[in-house]
Structure formats: structure tokens, C-alpha cells
Write a protein that binds this DNA or RNA. Sequence first.
DNA 1: GTCTATAGCCCGATAGAC
DNA 2: GTCTATCGGGCTATAGAC
Lengths: 217, 217
Amino acid sequence: MTLRVKPVAANVKRSDSRERLEHDILEAAKRLFAVRGYGGVSLDHIAREVGTAKQNLLYYFSSKESLYRRVLHGVLDVWLSYMEAITHHADDPETALRKYIAGKLRFSREHPFDSRVYANEVVSGTPLFAQEIKDRVLPALQADIAVFNRWAQQGVCRPVDAAHLMVVLWASTQAYADYASQICLVLGKPELDAEDFAAAERLLLDMVLRTVLTKAD
Amino acid sequence: MTLRVKPVAANVKRSDSRERLEHDILEAAKRLFAVRGYGGVSLDHIAREVGTAKQNLLYYFSSKESLYRRVLHGVLDVWLSYMEAITHHADDPETALRKYIAGKLRFSREHPFDSRVYANEVVSGTPLFAQEIKDRVLPALQADIAVFNRWAQQGVCRPVDAAHLMVVLWASTQAYADYASQICLVLGKPELDAEDFAAAERLLLDMVLRTVLTKAD
DNA sequence: GTCTATAGCCCGATAGAC
DNA sequence: GTCTATCGGGCTATAGAC
């Protein structure tokens, strides 16, 4: 009897297919949770979306709630990756704010479903997510606020209420994903395009720089 | 045989009790829909909240969807009643903007569940509400935008992009209701108080006046 | 890993007694 | 107007064949 080593290629392929299906499930779940909320989505909906049976979902994820948590975790990964502009440009307020606003608007444009899953969870009072927000979002936000306060001490910025400024920036940029359907109704077009995002960026940056910088443009 | 007129008092009382229960149902439904979304709430939840049976809800409202529509309709009544500041002070931009921002923040503070029901519906893509938004919200917003454009023509305001400015104001003020749980986490307190709303009002008004007015303060 | 089958429960809505 | 009873179906999750 000879030892047969499992062919590596087959292993990789199987693992690839497993990861691809897992990825597809997470993407479909994200889109559905974004639109209908946790309670408005059934495992059957998600399974049909990816062309498998709901029982198979419970093979990859131990429960509906754990699938949802995995979706939220992935959403937070993406969200945070767009949020590092301020601390990365802590030497220049104008550049930092420009990159921050541009980045958050790009997140709304490129990842609208991530944004809406997050919005749904927050509107619900973060029942399943408070700890992860405390652990991951809060430090990032507090680092940004600290940078603002340092700028104020150095005299390069007016002493604004940095926490509330972050709320304004956060809400305004996120609106272009979460409330897109209403913004479209107001603008009278079926969906937002590049020019709408550019106009939003111009206005928001203008508002923030006028408020924050000590010198006029 | 004498004609007996039904006692008026009893009529009024019965009608009062009917209206009170209907009102209680709508309030409970609003709170639950706000937190869990349409699909996350059952008629049984709502009925238990008001101390009756779900079959009784279907006596007052013909279906779950019609109950939800009634909730949305009432939410819009309240929402619109806080939105008339700009057109009512069309002669003075600074007063109009001050009253508008104060009003929208007061709405977020006094009617957080109305705000969140509305947010849930918009995040979902307004599946049941697009027509009513077109009929009732859009004219109000477009009237506000027209006022801004007139101000710009008259030279009392800089020519801002009024539609996007409305988005910023709308999103920023509404955030203090819809995203309160996250703002609380950032501020490190269990709930928002009067001083938080005052700080938000100061910052937002400051930002908008710096952006909109032609002369400096 | 994917399938069928099914347990056990909750859902919206209806029927009919009182 | 409120009650009990119930229909038909969808839900999450599990069991077990292959």
C-alpha cells in the first residue's frame, strides 16, 4: 500500500471554490441586508440569490446571526480603510480634509451597500455591533478629533467642536449612499453620477474649509 | 313605540376610545418599525405592545402594509411641519437658515422615531413611499431651493449649489436622530442632551452662514 | 459538500361565536 | 369590537442519505 498525497492542484481548486462561494454568499447577504434589514431577509432569499439551497448557507455559516456578523465585520473593514486620511496628513489641514471628504464620498459611491448595512445597524441602535464599533471605529474617530484639537492649539485651525464636525462630515458624505434614493428624487434623475459626487465634494470641502481654516482662501 | 336617540355622550366616548386605541397602535408601530424595519416587526409584537391581540389590529387596519403606510403618512405630516422655515422667512437668509436648522434639530430631538421610520424607508429605496415623497416632500424642497437661488440673484447670498446644501443640512440634522446611538458612542455618553443639540446647532449654523452669506460676520 | 426531509415555531390573514 | 380557532405558508435550524 502506497501513501497517496492529495494533489495540491485539486486542494487549491476546492479551497478556491469554497472561498468563492463563501464570498458570493457574503456579497448577496450584504446587498439584501442593506435594502431590507436583518429581519426583512431570509436565508432562503440569500441562497436563491447565489444559486444554492439555504441549508448550504448553514454549512458555511453556523447561523443567520453569525452570517450577519460576518457581513458587518467586512463592512467595517472597508469603511475604516477609507477613514485614515486625516491622521495620514496630520501636517496639513487642507490636504487632510480634502482627502478625507473625497475618500468618504468615494466609499459612498463605490460601496453603497456596505454603507447601507452600516446605516441599518446604527439606526437600529447597534444591537449586535456596539462592541465592534467601540473597539474599531471609536479609536479612529478619536484620533481624528485629536488631530483637529492639535491643529487648533497650533493656531492653524479655528477651535471648532471637532466631534460635531465629524458628525456633519460623516452624515453628509454617507447620505450619498444611504439616502441616494431621496437625493435622486430631489435632483430628478434615476441615479447619482460622477458630477453629483463632484458637486457634493466641492460644496462640503468649501463649507469645511471656510469653517476650519484661520485664513481665508 | 318611541324613537330612542342614541346618547351622544356614549357615542363620543366610544369614538374616543376607538381613536385612542388607533393612536396607540400607530405609536407602538412607529417605535417598532423605527428600530427593526418593516420586515423585522410582526403584528403580534405591535399588538402585545398596546395590550391587545393581533387580530384586533387587523380590525383597525386592513393589513400590515396599510398600517405601515398610515405610520409613514403621519411621519411625513410631522416632518413637513418642521420644514417651512425657509419659505416663511424668505426675506432674511440668516433668520431663515437659523430657524430651519433649529427646527430640523428640534424634530430630531422631539421625534426621533418618526425620523428613523423615514430613514429606514429611504435606505430601503422608498419601495412604498416614492409617490408620497414626490407629491409632498419634493415641492417643499424645491421651494426651499428656489428661495436660495433668488437670494443668489439678489446678491444677498453667494451662488451655492442649493440642492446639495439641502442634502448636507438634511443629513446632518437628521443624523442626531437616526445615528444617535453612534454619536453617543463617540461622545461617550448614554444619550444626547440639550447641550449636544445646542452644540450641533452652533456648528451647523456657523458652517452654513460662512458658506452662504456674502459678507463676513 | 450538497441533497431531501422535517421538526418546531412564527407569520399574516380569515371565519365565526359572542 | 373583541374573542377563540385555524388556515396556509415561511421561517431557522437540524438530521441524515449520498
